[in-house]
């Protein structure tokens, strides 16, 4: 393929050579992309929770609320990141079956998956997941309910702030609400390939 590389680069050089001057890279002020409808918040969790609700996500601030939500939806079988399970174990009654290894041959056996978030973006209600922070990509994606566990100090104010501190990680995913489509007649349906219920749990 090296010849294709040379061909393409030679054509690019040829195309750009006649230009008398080239467009400079504009400097731009991050303030420009701040949403004017949002006041600077002191409590980033409160803002994040409000924005998450707007995209049909579910913010929770206590493990007991999570257990109640799962009981109400009759979601009883699930996966939990082995590093997080010890702190949640006691809150889950015996009707729940929770595994700490995700078996990809039985993806439909898991109603929920609990994994760690690496951050969040308050302005957009977005959760930040990373490859190194997520114990299993599939467990955070395949079950109907995904619970991302978040700490208050991990919340960024806006997109630009989150972009400024992007970790060196091969797979960073910003999650803004449950999976959705409007392909069929423009009607919104949630839970297409990913979770139909997206929870952010503050610990």
């Amino acid at each position: 393929m090296s010849s294709d590389r040379d061909t393409i680069l030679a054509r690019v050089h040829g195309a750009l050579a006649p230009l008398a001057e080239r467009a400079p890279l504009p400097e731009w002020d991050l303030e420009l992309v701040h949403m004017r409808t949002i006041q600077p918040a002191t409590d980033l969790w409160a803002l994040f929770a409000e924005r998450l609700k707007l995209v049909n996500g579910t913010p929770l601030s206590a493990v007991a609320d999570l257990v109640a939500l799962l009981e109400q939806g009759r979601w009883r079988r699930g996966y939990c990141d082995p590093a997080l399970w010890p702190q949640f174990k006691d809150a889950f009654p015996a009707i729940f079956t929770v595994e700490t290894a995700f078996d990809r041959t039985r993806v439909d056996d898991y109603d929920f998956g609990i994994t760690a978030a690496t951050g969040a973006i308050a302005e957009t209600g977005t959760l930040v997941l990373t490859d190194q922070g997520t114990s299993s990509r599939l467990a955070a994606l395949a079950p109907w309910v995904h619970v991302a566990v978040l700490r208050r100090e991990q919340i960024h104010a806006d997109i630009s702030a989150a972009l400024a501190v992007m970790p060196a990680d091969p797979n960073i995913v910003w999650v803004t609400g449950p999976s959705k489509t409007a392909d069929v007649e423009g009607i919104l349906i949630e839970g297409v390939h990913g979770p139909g219920v997206q929870v952010a749990l503050l610990v």
Binding site: R104, D131, S136, R137, L138, D169, P170, W174, T176
Partner: peptide, 17 residues
């Protein structure tokens, strides 16, 4: 809903991907 930033193959400890 999903904005992914991918810079390479999965990390060593990650079971999926």
């Amino acid at each position: 809903v999903y904005t992914e930033f991918i810079s390479g193959p999965k990390s060593a400890a990650q079971p999926d991907g």
